[in-house]
Design a protein around this nucleic acid. Structure first.
Lengths: 193, 193, 193, 193
DNA sequence: TATGAATGAGCATTCATTCAT
DNA sequence: AATGAATGAATGCTCATTCAT
């Protein structure tokens, strides 16, 4: 599975064949891949599960401490970026699968549509903040999509430019979305001292 | 080329073969594709050029009227969304190529790295605004990446959910980035009247 | 397709692969087989159709002259054997497909069940003969199955032992089924002079 | 071995692989098959032996009582059908092996050629009857082949259409071959009372 | 401009079989 | 007796591309 991730990153989804994976894994036959995984779909699904398991491992503990819309939002951003820093290469592999994994009939198995659940969670936090008066009026869907894509951008930058400072990136994003969301006269959640 | 775009959208890059394209185009042989395009790379490049030509057609005239960092930024967002609305399906095809087009050695031919020029342009506008005192202090790179991805998100939403109101989406994004960038005590560039 | 028939006869259905067919046909790639036939099923079906077309060509003109149950039966036997003599090798190929061609779920595509239509035709002739009083009382189904298998036996013998005298075999079978079917006191349809 | 027979019947010889057999037998590895049988050929041979052992068990005692060509012939038919009724499904498996089992060089290991011994036995009975004046003049080979195939037809019918009455089928066949073989003026061996 | 025929490399997957416990 | 890991050859089929009209 590590060899698979390497192939996905280096060669892209389209050139990640059993032959290439076996080569990288030092196997003398592709047969062993078929032995451990029912088919390529299962292999890919397993990689996705593996990466998401890691995500939960890193993010959930950090999220536990957050309370209130503003802090939840900021923590979500910071925790996501923390994960990206830890697992940058795996994220490139995930992206390949995400963008290319399709059913035989052509419909994407993952792709943007699979973000719906997460988008709804984010939108829920945003709506809660609006009701609490902490956030201004805006379209929660647009904001949620933008945040989701902003985080994708972060993971891309961290993976492609390894000298990017994750700490700075995280703080900048928190600040950006704080300003984008806060009520006109509300206090800054990141008090400037 | 229209058949190619259809295939890319419906089947994804990986299943967009000469055979499938010829089938959709009603050709009885793939030979005609090879006749018009040197190879598959050229075909894909041609699709990319075609889509970007349209982008320039739609965006450039709108950008011409803008002056000053704030307005330039707002106009850039609005013009981009205007293009997405006009050419939503083509953008899905572009995305497929963007994410998958690679050299024989595996290095991406397009992908995030190809956004550098555009990111630099956006960052330039942001820096100009900071120097003019219209924008607050922030990392121009992070903001540029976030804006770029926010626009990607917009094109996705418009393509996948055809009932999305592009006008609203555009105004929401302009407002979002206005708040994210403006100097603490600066006036709103989109005055509420 | 001739190469396919050769393979079926010499190697059997199970070892008739694209590689072996291409080899015998002098093709430098199996690709050409896939080019002309959608898949292996289509190739096999085409062979079956080809062989049956020949059968109709040979048998139908001979059957045209027959009238009355006894003569029809005798002519059917003679015409069948005439075809076997003409196309003996092809019949071995047909047998391979007949016995092994199955749907993906395992159910036979041809096999004994596909003989139903022909069995019904034969049984019809037999019943007509019984009603006309030319044939004795017997179970038409059993007689039809036995005749069908007797003809299979003839084709096998003619294909495997090339010195078998088809003329003799034909007359023997006609006589055999005449005696097996005729009414107790009926006259012989093949009068001894 | 029962799992093997099941596979042969349900999937056909070509799809009866170690993997499928292990699956049906509830084994978690094909290794156990290789443990008990040297190779696939041995497994198939074992199945054939197993089926033929049963045949001898059923047929031999019944044959023991027969004496004289006519009775021997009638008993042979009746005993064969009795076996078919008892072991119908196994016979379908046998047929699969019979038709497909080949040496590496492609020559059939069983198939029609393996019937020679049995055909010679049947022909011997027929010749004895001719010499004794009980049977008319006919080609013993053609009659033997036809009887052999008639019995194959019976086993097919009994296996495929489970409501076929074996008793009737047996009597019909006996009567059929009695009429086909008996001397012109000879008495019926199955006197109607 | 359009076509059918032909090609060799590559694909995921299945085959029977062997190794090591 | 039973298992899981490993193997190399073979399967049908698709790939982009070229040849010849």
């Amino acid at each position: 599975m590590e060899a698979t991730i390497d192939c996905l990153v280096d060669l892209g989804y389209g050139h990640t064949s059993y032959a290439r994976i076996a080569e990288r894994a030092g196997l003398s036959s592709t047969r062993l891949i078929s032995y451990h995984f029912a088919d390529k779909d299962e292999l890919m699904q397993e990689v996705v599960n593996h990466v998401f398991d890691r995500a939960r491992e890193v993010i959930n503990p950090l999220m536990a401490a957050a309370s209130g819309p503003k802090q939840t939002l900021a923590t979500f951003i910071a925790a996501s970026v923390a994960w990206y820093r830890a697992d940058a290469p795996k994220l490139l592999a995930l992206r390949e699968i995400w963008n290319n994994f399709r059913s035989p009939d052509g419909t994407p198995r993952l792709g943007p549509a699979s973000h719906e659940a997460e988008l709804e969670t984010i939108a829920g936090i945003l709506r809660a903040g609006q009701e609490a008066g902490e956030f201004r009026e805006f379209d929660p869907r647009v904001m949620a999509v933008t945040l989701r894509k902003a985080l994708d951008g972060a993971s891309e930058q961290l993976a492609l430019y390894r000298d990017t400072d994750a700490e700075v990136y995280s703080l900048e994003l928190v600040s950006l979305f704080d300003r984008a969301t806060r009520a006109a006269d509300g206090p800054s959640p990141v008090p400037v001292t």
